[in-house]
């Protein structure tokens, strides 16, 4: 039995960041993630969504869940069409920040998930895809 669901959430404002957190939480509950796993994926979603709203000038998030006999997991893709990240390696380093934050955003987010994939092109935008397996 395989079932999957796909939810798209627009990311333009701070309210959208909050509603993405709620949607990700809902899906994690459907997948019967443990409370800790729910917390990790929601926190990761919050970090990425805020980046997209503040630095990427808005974008969208796609939540995909897969329920099957093999492996249950939640995939989140956050896309923006902002300026992009000139040096991805620098951005992934702990302590690096351009937005006056603590510089934990991307490197910290990577530690909360099982898979992390970042694509960015200067002038085109940034897309980050994360997966947390159950």
């Amino acid at each position: 039995m395989a079932a999957s669901e796909r939810v798209t959430v627009a990311l333009r404002t701070q309210e959208d960041v909050v509603s993405l957190r709620h949607r990700v939480r809902e899906q994690a509950v459907v997948l019967r993630f443990s409370l800790l796993d729910q917390t990790k994926i929601v926190t990761a979603a919050s970090e990425l969504a805020r980046n997209a709203v503040i630095y990427g000038g808005g974008g969208e998030a796609i939540i995909e869940t897969s329920l099957n006999n093999g492996r249950d997991g939640l995939t989140l893709t956050v896309i923006d069409h902002g300026p992009g990240i000139p040096n991805v390696e620098d951005a992934m380093r702990a302590g690096f920040s351009t937005g006056g934050g603590l510089g934990l955003g991307l490197s910290g987010t990577r530690r909360l998930v099982d898979e992390f994939e970042l694509r960015s092109e200067v002038g085109q935008g940034t897309s980050v895809r994360i997966v947390r397996w159950k």
Binding site: L35, L36, Q38, T39, K40, T43, E47, A94, L102, L104, S107, G108, T109, R111, L112
Partner: peptide, 13 residues
Amino acid sequence: QPAVAITLVELGL
């Protein structure tokens, strides 16, 4: 909460 604390530590804070 415990789950929040663990996540925050893993985030690096």
